[in-house]
Structure formats: C-alpha cells, structure tokens
Design a protein around this nucleic acid. Sequence first.
DNA 1: CTAGCATTCAAACGTTCGTTTGAAAGTCAT
DNA 2: ATGACTTTCAAACGAACGTTTGAATGCTAG
Lengths: 223, 223
Amino acid sequence: MSLRAVKPQHETRTRILDAAEELFMQHGFEATSMRLLTGKAGVNLAAVNYHFGSKHALIEAVFRRRLDPMNQARLAGLDKVEAESRPSSPEAIIRAFISPTLELVQDAKGGGRNFIRLLGRAYTEPTKSIRQLIGQTYAPVMDRFKAALECALPQMPRDELVWRMHFMFGTLAYTLAATDTVQLIAGCKPEDRYDAALLEERLTAFLHAGLNAPLKNSIRKAA
Amino acid sequence: MSLRAVKPQHETRTRILDAAEELFMQHGFEATSMRLLTGKAGVNLAAVNYHFGSKHALIEAVFRRRLDPMNQARLAGLDKVEAESRPSSPEAIIRAFISPTLELVQDAKGGGRNFIRLLGRAYTEPTKSIRQLIGQTYAPVMDRFKAALECALPQMPRDELVWRMHFMFGTLAYTLAATDTVQLIAGCKPEDRYDAALLEERLTAFLHAGLNAPLKNSIRKAA
DNA sequence: CTAGCATTCAAACGTTCGTTTGAAAGTCAT
DNA sequence: ATGACTTTCAAACGAACGTTTGAATGCTAG
C-alpha cells in the first residue's frame, strides 16, 4: 500500500454518480443520454457500462447511494425519540422522519438538494422498477414509523392512520420536489425557500395538525 | 349538412388523445413512442403530426383537454361558496378546490383517473415547457383561492399561508398520483382506495387541520 | 360527375439512442 | 522488467426514435 495521499477510490464511479444525479434531476432519466452524462462527468462513454453495467443500473446506484444513509438516519432518529420517552409524541416522530430529508436539502454544494428533488419525482415515476426500488428501500422504515405512530395515537383507526401517513409522505415529497408551485402561489421567489430550520417548523406544524385532525363521523363510521 | 347521426367530429383526434392519456400515464412521455401510441389508437403513424403538429403539441393538448374544465369547475365552486356566505369558511374553500379533482378520480371508465395521475406527475416533470403549461393554467386559479383564503384567515401571515397552500397542493397532487405509497404503508391494497366521497372527507379533514395549525413562535417571528 | 379539400396511408428520412468491441494505457506485486 | 489485472479509449453496432413525403382515398359543394 502506498503512503501517498489516498487517490480517491473509484473516482470515475463517483464522478459518474454526481453527474447523473444532477442531470437526472434537470432532464429526467430518459432524456439524459449517456453521451451528455459521460461528457459532464469527464469520463469515456463506455465507462458507465463498465462500472455499472447499464444505464438502468446506474439509476439504481444513484438512489441507493443517498437513500440508504437517509433512511438509516431516520431510524436512528426514531430510536432516539423512543428511548427518551414512551409513548413518544407524534410531533417528535414526525421530526425524526422529515429532518434527514431537510438536511439533504441544505446541502446545496454537494448534490443533496438535487437528489431530494429527484427523489420526490421518483415516487410517481412511470418506470415500475424504480418505484419498486423506492418501495423496497422504504418498506422497513414505513413499518417502524407506522408502529410508532400507532403507539403514539392509540385512539386513531388504523386505516385512517394509513391515509394520514400517506398524506404526510406526499406533502414532504412534493414540497421539496415541486419548486415551481410555491413560486406560483407566492407570485415570486421567496428568499427563505431553503431555510431548512424554518421549513422544518412550517412542515412540522402543518403535518402535526393534519395528523391530529379531529375524526369526522363519516370517517369513524367507515373504520 | 346531413341528417345522419353526427359522425363524431375529429374522431381521430379524440382516439389519439385517449390513447395518449393512458400511455403517458403508464409509461411517461418520453417512453411512449408514436408507434405504440398510434397503434393503440388504431390510427396511422402520421396522424399525430397531421392533427397536432408534433409529439410535444400532443402532450399539451392532453393537458388542456382536462385541465381547463377542471379549473373552471374549481372557480365555479368558489363562486358558489363565496356567494353563500362572507367570509367563507376555509373548509368550504378547500372542498371547492379538491372536489373537481376527486370527481375525475371517480371516472375510471373514461380516462379521468388516468389523467389525474398524469397531472400529479406533471408538477415535478423535468420538461420545463410542461411545467410552464401547468403553471400558466393554474395561475389565475391560484390567485383566486389565495385571495379567498386570505380573506377567510385574516390573522395568518401571508408567507405562512403561501407555504400552507403549497403543502395542501402537494398533498392533493401526490396522494392521487402515487398510488404505490399508500399500499406500501398499508401493506396491502385497500378496497376503498377510490371511494371518492370518503377520500374527500379524509383529505378535507387533514388539509383543514393543517391549514389551521397553530402558529409557532419561530414562524410568527419570521413573518 | 367533378373539382377541391381534408384525411389517411405506407414508406422512407436522418438522427440519436444504449451498448459492445478490441486494442491501448495504466497499475501493481513479484 | 515482466506478467496479470484493471481501467480507459475511439469506433462502431443495430435498433428505435420523431418526423416528412407524396401518393391514395374519402368526402362535399357546385
């Protein structure tokens, strides 16, 4: 082994992943050609197939690189919340879920923000294998958070909780992916759009209230 | 002019639009080829370029066909709400916004449900011109609903309202577009997934609570 | 019937796509 | 230095794409 400063291992792989993250966000998967991608990454056209096998495998790798750590952070946050008090407060559970996402949003220098927008789009991606990848990655996380919320809100019917989690999930994903809409409503680009701390307060307040919305009769009856 | 039963005017156009709606929803815009599309529609390959000019113009036409009536219905609903009582209740305003969407969701026979999923994806579409089309179509609707909510919630800071509208908008769009997620949370496919009446109750309860969430200190300070 | 227009059709156009190939260059232990 | 890998490279592959073309067909008014 050499004593030289560590020459980045798999530097080509990393450069491809970084370029892919940005271009997939900008143009989508299909519209991003391997020639454009390898050009931006500064590598040979054949490098993607050599290092990843195919374009589709590259797409999966882009997701796995960020998604696994993010979900680990979510589970770790939930561990901490549950260790501190039982039963946990719904608000603390919500924060454990959304704060790893917002941390990535703050990462404008690295590709974190790019990735979050990419992820928000992936939930509604037409390509089935991509949705499946997302689904598989999220399944254990969903189970844990669902159980935690069931414990924190014992009076809520199960199917109503499922829908409210769905709503919460959608709000988070969409809020961060659809940057145009908030400008559309506001009429101009707000300066604090990516003040993650303030955004976390706003999201938490909204989601917490929605999660604890009073149960109407029609909903109770259906439960 | 003939006395025969009206032979559908522009039947080819309609068949193309219907096929496009379904295929764009299933596979996305880029992944849907003109050959597959015209094959499903039962028309000649050149028909799309003859009737619409280009693939991209067809995409726009698919959106315009449904979006304009839907937004008209929203404005009509808001008119009715505002005529009945001033100031209007936030809940009635929310219902005026979401119920035209849910009516389309119930239209499983026609392409309404397909279109809603397509629309949910369009907000995060990488293709800029599509997002712009959506934005232009929604701008007047957004202005009206924003004004209505400002009037209904005079105590809420403007920028907080903008964000909460963004959250609401996201919840609606995402809920209807990402059909996989609710299955992921629930663990199985719920039977009543598309019971529009029940879904409207659930959505309204969630959104109304979120919109009226208590203002935290940090938010008040930023306002 | 026929001239004029709208629509349909099969065939082909040029381009771009993801991937493959086989040789060249780089890397490292022995 | 040498041999065995790994990695890069320029070039090419066949396939599929959106679009165009010009002839054929359908329809309607005069």
